[in-house]
């Protein structure tokens, strides 16, 4: 009884800030300006401009996810092999930037990468050719990797530390060398961590508009930017909501696919 009472504020909160907005998105997405039911806002994804933005977002977030995975896995392994007191120190060092505001961090990269920014001033002083990366897809990928890397490292680190040393010892004992032990035992056992890491990087990267705005300089139009502009510039809430629904369905579809492919069904999000 008292437990139920305790959950009331939470239920109220989720109704107000999750359910209601979601219903509103669906309402706007499935109606036109006059309030009549329509599927036009959903179908709008098929227009060349919108589908191009969606595929651009998919492409950049996939590349970022792969880079994050390749960087995060060795990093998580190094963290795991550290002595306990060292590793907690390193984890803190690693998480420290995450305590800073996301926008601030991205703006910092902008001023670093700008044509007349910090990096190019240094390169210029050294008589080296300037780095021309700002306002390109590469800058956006860099921003995504930088911002989302910790979300890949932590879940992988979490599964790796839980692997019993005796299990890897058993593999060595049965004749496997270090490489074989990695591919036959450690890697398969860390799949759940990789899957939650992939989800936690891919989804925010797919929907971001801040990173592409700041580091893409308006030249890189992702689906997130398109939706944002519908709300803030075109004031077409119906189209913005319709495209959001498509994006949501796309993400859910992908998560179901990964959950099914992962035969243990362990999609644990952190």
């Amino acid at each position: 009884m008292s437990k139920k009472l305790l959950s009331v504020p939470y239920l109220f909160w989720s109704a107000l800030f999750i359910i209601v907005p979601l219903l509103m998105v669906f309402y706007y997405g499935l109606t036109d300006k006059s309030g009549a039911f329509t599927l036009a806002n959903i179908a709008a994804i098929a227009s060349p401009e919108h589908s191009k933005a969606l595929w651009a977002a998919v492409r950049l977030s996939l590349i970022s996810t792969v880079i994050c995975l390749l960087l995060a896995y060795p990093l998580a392994m190094i963290l795991c092999n550290m002595k306990v007191n060292h590793s907690s120190f390193t984890v803190v060092i690693f998480i420290l930037p995450m305590w800073m505001n996301f926008l601030l961090r991205t703006l910092a990269w902008q001023s670093l990468l700008e044509k007349t920014g910090v990096i190019n001033s240094i390169l210029g002083a050294l008589h080296l050719p300037p780095l021309q990366i700002i306002n390109t897809s590469n800058a956006v990928i860099l921003g995504m990797v930088y911002n989302f890397l910790p979300f890949m490292v932590l879940p992988i680190y979490n599964v790796l530390v839980k692997i019993d040393a005796n299990i890897t010892n058993a593999a060595r004992d049965l004749g496997a060398n270090e490489v074989q032990t990695f591919f036959k035992v450690i890697l398969p056992l860390s799949v759940p961590g990789m899957i939650s890491g992939i989800t936690m990087v891919f989804v925010p990267a797919l929907t971001t508009f801040v990173i592409s705005n700041i580091l893409g300089g308006g030249k890189i139009l992702l689906i997130g930017n398109v939706i944002e502009q519908e709300f803030t510039q075109a004031y077409n809430w119906n189209l913005g909501s319709g495209l959001s629904i498509v994006l949501m369905l796309f993400i859910i579809f992908n998560m179901v696919i990964t959950a099914v492919t992962d035969k243990d069904g362990e999609v644990s999000i952190l």
Partner: peptide, 30 residues
Amino acid sequence: LPPNKRQLNTVFQKYALFPHMNVAENIAFG
């Protein structure tokens, strides 16, 4: 000599079976 080069095998205290492999795959590992 590293463990994988020794002609002996260990039965560990907590069994240490490979949790992602079935019984046959566990036995077949070596």
